[in-house]
Nucleic acid binder design. Structure first.
Lengths: 217, 217
DNA sequence: GTAAAAACCGTACCGTCATACGGTTATCCG
DNA sequence: CGGATAACCGTATGACGGTACGGTTTTTAC
């Protein structure tokens, strides 16, 4: 039997290298050779794990999409487990998309770069669409759940609301990225909180009838 | 004296060709040779008008940015001249960014493609930032003007409101582009109108005390 | 030990593209 | 008319990058 290696782990390493390169120097700077060098392996090995460069990029994009969705999922799950007000939970979920620090800024650059290329790469576009769909579904579910405990008006349609919330988050992300210092004297962080919370306030118009405090409090 | 040519017109033609290529096949498909062919001229001539490819792309991006700003400006000007309700005027301005038809979809693809490359091209980034700034300023001015005739609460800060409005428009544009058919049964056009108007309703909370009808009515 | 199979390496090849450059054509002024 | 100058053309060139490919090393089962 031949020597073995952790296939998924290798692919993850390569995806990591791709993301690092994109975040630091842009998608155009991603070459197979540079990726291999960044990942600390040879060109041939990268080829061993990905038949083509496109496939490599696709896998990288899928990886970041999955990571983002997982983070959102996790926050929602933790929030509902701890019976926190949904408006608070969603506020944090949405703020996650806004590039207020280095980490989120790097992630923003990566997703934007891929989204840009996705304009003419159907495989990448599908990942983009699917990621957005799932996040929107999460938000819609959050709004729907809000009805059960009275945070949301019973006759509100969750889908347009979810579209609005996601739109504000993504649009705000664009603006904060362009103007990291904020707008007209208002720092970016304050602006983000203000805009997101104002938006959430139009959806979550009531307070939860049940337990809204922290579990340990 | 030598033979003459309309310098600006030639550069406009080239920018046009670049935009067509970007809209149809993406920014990666833009080569100097292809651009020249699309514009119906030789490679050498393109070089005659632009020292480098980067300069060519920069000029193209500047051109589309200026066109977009001009359209927004024009709508606002026409609206205020005709004394139409500001909420209506801004609704149309914001909808202008949402890719609901072929024209806007093509423009969206162009701006997104350039914005993507702008992530690692400072010159392009500056155009992107400046364009967004001016549009936001227009919106803020609109909100501010709304105070004078009572459409907007006097104590509302126009800047966060402008950020919100632009964020919704840009974010909605992303979602409509990804899901041109709409979301969960709601067609894109209806969704756009609903989201934008809902958003405007949170800013323009009053009705104009003065003349709000059409001038000819 | 050894054979097989996979993991891994380095390079050669080929196409593409931006740019440089020498040459040609058209126009205008004197 | 003529020459000067800009408009315009076509190609050569050099760099770069994706992929094909042959070779080497390592591990494991028998």
């Amino acid at each position: 039997m031949p020597r073995t290696a952790d296939h998924d782990e290798r692919r993850r390493q390569i995806a990591e290298a791709v993301c690092a390169l994109v975040a630091d120097h842009g998608l155009d700077a991603v070459t197979v050779a540079r990726t291999a060098a960044t990942a600390g392996m040879s060109v041939g090995l990268v080829q061993h794990y990905f038949r083509s460069k496109d496939e490599m990029l696709l896998h990288a994009f899928r990886t970041v999409g999955a990571r983002i969705r997982a983070r959102a999922d996790e926050r929602v799950r933790a929030g509902t487990d701890h019976r926190r007000p949904l408006a608070r939970v969603l506020s944090e979920v949405l703020a996650e998309f806004v590039p207020l620090d280095g980490t989120r800024r790097a992630e923003f650059r990566v997703t934007r770069a891929f989204a840009g290329r996705a304009l003419d790469a159907p495989a990448l576009a599908e990942v983009d669409v699917e990621t957005a769909r799932l996040i929107r579904a999460d938000l819609a579910r959050g709004v729907h759940n809000g009805k059960e405990c009275g945070e949301v008006a019973p006759d509100l349609d969750p889908w347009p609301a979810a579209v609005r919330l996601l739109a504000v988050a993504e649009g705000l992300a664009l603006q904060v990225y362009r103007d990291p210092g904020g707008v007209e004297g208002t720092p970016a962080a304050e602006l983000t909180a203000a805009v997101i919370d104002a938006e959430l306030a139009t959806v979550f118009t009531g307070t939860c009838r049940q337990y809204t405090g922290r579990p340990g409090a």
